[in-house]
Design a protein around this nucleic acid. Structure first.
Lengths: 188, 188
DNA sequence: CAATACTATATGATTAGTCTTATAGTGGAG
DNA sequence: CTCCACTATAAGACTAATCATATAGTATTG
């Protein structure tokens, strides 16, 4: 359901094509929602037949055919409902890296330390991606979405990005604590 | 893939049935992996035909038929590989609550404040569940899995639970910051 | 002895997401 | 003029997950 709601979210900024939506997902939402291209087009079809969006126009300005979609009143309603009624189930998401952490005690001491280092490495990489690209991405997002930079709607995307970074930092701390704990236990 | 790996993880503690595995998921992994019962039985079938697990015995001690599965050498190998090679894709998970946060700027000031309060409320609820149940769950998990309480393999589950709580607390702080920011902007 | 709760496994229908491949046009580099 | 990159949409096959429902036994309670 969330992909469809995300699409409605982007379309409520301005009418756009499936291709635009895919680019925006990649630019600004990739770290919390990897959106599949095929899935986007399928969702657009579903939203269209549901009357949540409508065909705004088919253009062909030096390039291939382009279908622009616009959000309808009904779609605005759905989007609004989704935003003001966050549910408990929206909070429970599959975190396979925590599943790995959970079972990492099955490894030997050495292997577990190697595991923690590997998690640290990947986590640091993601943090760097977020730190170096976040603001650039938000700017690119602003341009692609044709928003003014101080547009009120931008601020939440910045906060979401900030959350990504905060979480990475907190996770680094936890992993370091775990490492220290294991080393301490080995000395006893 | 992670559900299968999780099942292998539980089975590497001791042989058990699909029903046991479902209970353990609910007890100790529900907040980072809601496992569907039907999916567990289907995964067991697949793991069996893959030779990752084997039928350890069918018992019927005052109750319905019970199929116990044990992990094979091959399964141990798969589990070990999964644990020592965490991948970048394991880190990217769909977070629909962040998608909502991302788009919450589309709401009016009042509605956005209401949205943030709702997120705070749900997040606090999850934190309480984790705080009040985590240790109890780990103990229940210990008993169900028939582990001694200071078993080395337990510690990772405690850390995973701790991570859940840390994340909730950090998210609460972020949401409060956002609220303060919105109120400040309204006064300007 | 009927209702309810718990243990235990399984299928069927459906939805969401992934991965691959196809098609078709434009523009630039070598 | 061919290869490559980019824009743009879409179908097909498959996997993972969800939701409902069926079946069957035991144990407890009223």
């Amino acid at each position: 359901m969330s992909l469809e709601n995300g699409i409605l979210g982007y379309l409520s900024i301005r009418p756009m094509s499936g291709y635009d939506i895919k680019k925006l997902f990649n630019l600004s939402a990739a770290y919390f929602w990897p959106a599949d291209q095929a899935q986007i087009y399928r969702s657009l079809k579903k939203l269209l037949s549901d009357g949540q969006i409508e065909l705004h126009g088919i253009s062909r300005g030096d390039g291939p055919e382009r279908k622009e979609y616009a959000i309808t009143e009904k779609g605005q309603g759905t989007l609004h409902d989704w935003l003001i009624h966050p549910s408990q189930t929206d909070f429970i998401s599959r975190l396979s890296y925590i599943m790995q952490l959970f079972f990492s005690g099955l490894l030997s001491g050495e292997d577990q330390l190697r595991f923690l280092d590997e998690q640290l490495r990947i986590n640091q990489g993601i943090l760097q991606q977020l730190e170096f690209n976040c603001w650039d991405n938000i700017k690119a997002y602003t341009e692609t979405a044709k928003l003014s930079e101080d547009d009120i709607r931008l601020t939440s995307s910045v906060w979401a990005c900030k959350w990504g970074m905060l979480r990475c930092k907190a996770y680094t701390e936890l992993l370091e604590e775990m490492k220290a704990d294991i080393r301490k236990k080995r000395l006893m």
